[in-house]
Write a protein that binds this DNA or RNA. Sequence first.
DNA 1: TGCCATACCTAAGATTAATAAGTATGAAAA
DNA 2: TTTTCATACTTATTAATCTTAGGTATGGCA
Lengths: 111, 111
Amino acid sequence: MKKQQQLYKGSLSAIIMKLLEQNGRMYGYEITQKVKEITVGEMNLTEGALYPALHKMEADGFLDVEMEKVDGRIRKYYKLTESGIKETDNKMEELENFVRNMQSIVNLKLT
Amino acid sequence: MKKQQQLYKGSLSAIIMKLLEQNGRMYGYEITQKVKEITVGEMNLTEGALYPALHKMEADGFLDVEMEKVDGRIRKYYKLTESGIKETDNKMEELENFVRNMQSIVNLKLT
DNA sequence: TGCCATACCTAAGATTAATAAGTATGAAAA
DNA sequence: TTTTCATACTTATTAATCTTAGGTATGGCA
């Protein structure tokens, strides 16, 4: 049993937005699975964090939603709005600056 | 006026510990100045976050304190304990894993 | 039948940083 | 000389964001 990577608080929205940017549209559960897949199980987005985050981003006008019934189950597909695309760029710049600054301070070893 | 970099929550203790590891011992105010200097003003540790964090790390046994009076002012010098050194390694490994995973997900552009 | 994966949801709690306010010294500027 | 600024510490309140822990429901498989 591998140790779960804890999320640094503030990074979740960047993850969501970037995945939506890359994939066009996704539904919540799909996002959790994608993150698990990409990080080989090291990161696990909890649903208790994910869904409220999606709702907030929608309320903020960064995401649009489409409901679809697939195999008897409801899926809510999210995609970035125009404003969401801009916000994605902002978030990414912030994240990159953060990592750069952390690099300077703590001398990260990234293989 | 440059935009201040917000801290991703969870990163503060890693910053403090790594600076103490590099510099042997430091006092609170010195840590804030060091971070400002290294990041060219982009990061600004708020004192309301820093001091409580130092107190908690001391309470957790990761830091030792020495009080000194310099120029009529009290300074509290902190240094890592044995347990603090181990914790520093853990924190750094976590941080590196986090950045690696973020790399895989969002494709960070680091100059 | 019961369990598991899928797919959504929310309430309560914990953690952690920001904001804002305070105390105090000493040096430099007005 | 009075005020302002940098130094140096402190704490309480607020805000943001995640975890934990529950809940509902469908459909496939053992």
